[in-house]
Structure formats: structure tokens, C-alpha cells
């Protein structure tokens, strides 16, 4: 198929940026969206032009590196997939496709479609862990039974890949889904309960410092999340936050 691409080009953080138009041809439906961009870049290099910068790594939907706002949707059309799992069979011959980077104050553009998502790392640094040192003498893993339902829920929350689609999708650029996924995972497990109060307070505090917006329960984040992280996690984080605020010192 032949397509028209309208792509955001921005040389660096300081540059203003603009949309540019590129035609591509002979695109097969079996190509992933990123492989289609590979074709474009190969073409640009051969024409002596600068290829489009975009983030990608594992290309199997798990590393969370790829981003892209495609036709107004994070990771493009399709549910519970990342951009690398989006295949060109989702488009038809003659389509015009708009490709933009994640847009959020907390995610400045590095170049073209690449953004800086280190704000998410800093939220994790503030409390996204259990304070246990490496030791060959921790208790046996089966000493504390964990109800399967809790373990499963914790796992579902833990599948977040930290891509930032929730932030890019949210009209407030809120990172509540991301933050709540980690808060929930650890709050649901006995190992994480000990520090649950400090964790939620510190992570939410850092989230606010980074300039992410608040949650107004639109629910778009859940729809666009490639891992289907549930809004329930935000509710759980709010409960945890409230209880920590009331009972904390």
C-alpha cells in the first residue's frame, strides 16, 4: 500500500518543531508500524536526508521504549498493544497517518519523536521498592503464603511497562495510572505492606513535583494502556493515600 505520513520533526529540545509530510510506498500489511518507519528512514538516508528519530528497542511489546502518538492515539489504533505490535494491516492504501511524540510538560522532546521520560524513573526512586537488601539469608520464599487472588492482582498491576501512554493520553497529563500500578502491586503483597504508607506519600509527592497533572477520572489512560492496567489501581492508590495521610505522623 501507499501512504502519506505527517511526522513531527524537531531538532532538539530548544527547537520549535513542525509537521513534515513524507510519502511511502510498497508497504506490506505484515510490517509492524516501526518497520514501516524503518522503510521511510532507509529512503531518507538514501536521499541524503536526516532520518526520523524514534524510540524503540525490544520490538515485542515489553520494554516500553516505543511511544508515538498515531492519529491522535497513544500507540495508534488497536487495544492493549504497543506501537511495535501495531501492524500495517490496520491501515489501508491511500491513508494519511499523523505521527507525533508523547505530549506532556513532564516529557520534554529530545528529538523528533523521542521524549525524555526520566520523570517516571524519579517517581520510582521516591518509593517504588521494598527496602530489602540483597541477602542470602532472607526467609524461605514459601514462608509467607500469598492468596492467589492477591498475587494475581499484584501481577496485573506489575505488568506496567512504564511507556508513558497513560500520561500522553490524559488531558491533564497525569501519571496516576503509572504511579498507582506500582503502589498497588506492593500494597497487595505482604512484603510491601510494611512501608505502604511512606511509599504512597513519597511517590505521589514526587509525581506532583515532576509537573504531572491530577486525575479527573476520565479513564482514557486505561483504554490506551498497552497492558490494560486497570483504573482500580488509581482507586486503590487514593485509598492508600488517604489512609496514610490520616494515620501517618
Amino acid at each position: 500500500m501507499n501512504l502519506t505520513l505527517k511526522i513531527w520533526r524537531q531538532k532538539n529540545k530548544q527547537d520549535k518543531g513542525r509537521m513534515e509530510t513524507y510519502p511511502v510506498s510498497n508497504i506490506s500489511g505484515d510490517m509492524s508500524f516501526l518497520e514501516m518507519l524503518d522503510v521511510l528512514n532507509e529512503q531518507l538516508i538514501n536521499d541524503g536526508k536526516e532520518p526520523v528519530a524514534f524510540d524503540h528497542d525490544c520490538r515485542e511489546g515489553i520494554c516500553g521504549m516505543c511511544s508515538l502518538f498515531i492519529n491522535g492515539e497513544a500507540h495508534g489504533p488497536g487495544r492493549e498493544i504497543t506501537t511495535c505490535q501495531l501492524h500495517m494491516r490496520s491501515f489501508k492504501d491511500g491513508d494519511t497517518i499523523h505521527i507525533e511524540p508523547w505530549r506532556a510538560a513532564a516529557f520534554p522532546v529530545v528529538k523528533d519523536l523521542v521524549t525524555d521520560r526520566s520523570a517516571l524513573d524519579r517517581i520510582m526512586n521516591a518509593g517504588g521498592f521494598v527496602s530489602v537488601n540483597t541477602s542470602g539469608n532472607t526467609i524461605d520464599a514459601n514462608t509467607i503464603p500469598v492468596p492467589k487472588a492477591d498475587a494475581d492482582k499484584a501481577f496485573d498491576a506489575a505488568t506496567c511497562i512504564g511507556c508513558g501512554a497513560c500520561v500522553a493520553t490524559c488531558k491533564n497529563a497525569s501519571a496516576m495510572l503509572f504511579t498507582s500500578a506500582k503502589v498497588s502491586q506492593l500494597a497487595l503483597l505482604p512484603q510491601g505492606k510494611v512501608e505502604a504508607h511512606d511509599r504512597v506519600l513519597n511517590m505521589v509527592h514526587q509525581m506532583d513535583l515532576e509537573g504531572f497533572g491530577n486525575c479527573t477520572n476520565t479513564g482514557a489512560c486505561e483504554v490506551e494502556c498497552p497492558k490494560g492496567i486497570s483504573l482500580e489501581n488509581i482507586a486503590r492508590m487514593n485509598r492508600e493515600y488517604l489512609s496514610a495521610s490520616v494515620t501517618g505522623e
Binding site: V130, V132, T138, A141, V146, K148, A151, G192
Partner: peptide, 25 residues
């Protein structure tokens, strides 16, 4: 020899391994 400690360590960190209905790994 150290393989068993890895599982203990990861569980202590909150890694959500699959469990059976009795709560065991």
C-alpha cells in the same frame, strides 16, 4: 547452589510469581 536464594530474594522484593490456591509458589 545459590539458585534457591534468588527466589527468596525476589519474593522479598515483591516479585509477584505465580502461586497456587494454597498461596504457595
Amino acid at each position: 547452589e545459590v539458585s534457591a536464594s534468588i527466589i527468596d530474594q525476589c519474593v522479598a522484593q515483591g516479585v509477584p510469581f505465580a502461586r497456587e490456591y494454597g498461596g504457595m509458589l
